[in-house]
């Protein structure tokens, strides 16, 4: 029997956590528990990102997604959590159709994912030989317009590689717009102070 490959064990643990809590999010009716399970699922996803060798994305996932977005989401849950909204049951018909469609979709996706030979894992010994790649700096260079991973490729004439500078700027502007928009939408509405009756 082959030796056990330990990173796979951690993959199984984190993958099971991510999938299990995702299913729990789906099955729970209580909105606060849903939020809690979602947090655990996304944190386990961050663990999977670390396992895939993408430290920077994993840390970002923890910082922005789990630490920022989900706190915001739970904030929303707490602002609107009244007795009657905490558990809203889904109708049985919805469940039936949903589960049927979901199972079909899942089957299709998994079959598609496993049918490409190149997407199966490398040889375990080969992976252990590979160097741990530093991820932060190449990503930063990419955002600033320099693709360090494509330097050695033959330069295609007349194609200017801009990296992701433009996208980065667009996202920045987008975030600014969202910030202002969200503040505008959620601002405290002043009730029209007792309309003067003239």
């Amino acid at each position: 029997m082959n030796q056990i490959y330990w990173p796979s064990v951690f993959f199984l643990i984190f993958g099971a956590l991510a999938c299990g809590f995702a299913v729990a999010v789906l099955l729970t009716a209580n909105i606060v528990r849903m939020a809690f399970y979602l947090v655990l699922s996304l944190a386990a996803t961050a663990g999977l990102f670390f396992l895939a060798g993408q430290d920077f994305v994993g840390a970002m996932q923890l910082l922005i997604y789990v630490g920022g977005t989900l706190v915001l989401l739970i904030f929303g849950v707490m602002l609107t959590s009244q007795e009657r909204f905490v558990s809203m049951k889904t109708m049985a018909g919805d469940w039936l159709i949903g589960l049927g469609a979901g199972a079909a979709l899942l089957f299709l996706l998994v079959i598609a994912a496993t049918s490409v030979p190149n997407w199966r894992g490398r040889d375990a010994a080969e992976v252990q030989q590979m160097q741990v790649e530093k991820t932060a700096a190449p990503i930063a260079m990419g955002l600033l317009g320099a693709r360090v991973d494509q330097i050695n490729e033959p330069a295609q004439a007349n194609i200017v590689r801009s990296g992701y500078l433009l996208h980065f700027e667009i996202v920045s502007i987008h975030l600014l717009v969202v910030l202002i928009g969200a503040a505008y939408l959620a601002r405290a509405k002043r009730k029209p102070a007792s309309v003067p009756t003239t």
């Binding site: 030796q3 991510a18 899942l106 199966r120 894992g121 375990a124």
Partner: peptide, 22 residues
């Protein structure tokens, strides 16, 4: 999986479960 390194397909399977649940 225990004796092999995980590949893209394994990550995609996890992603598929999360996608369908979502």
């Amino acid at each position: 999986l225990l004796t092999e390194a995980p590949g893209v397909a394994h990550f995609m399977a996890v992603g598929a479960v999360m996608f369908v649940c979502g």
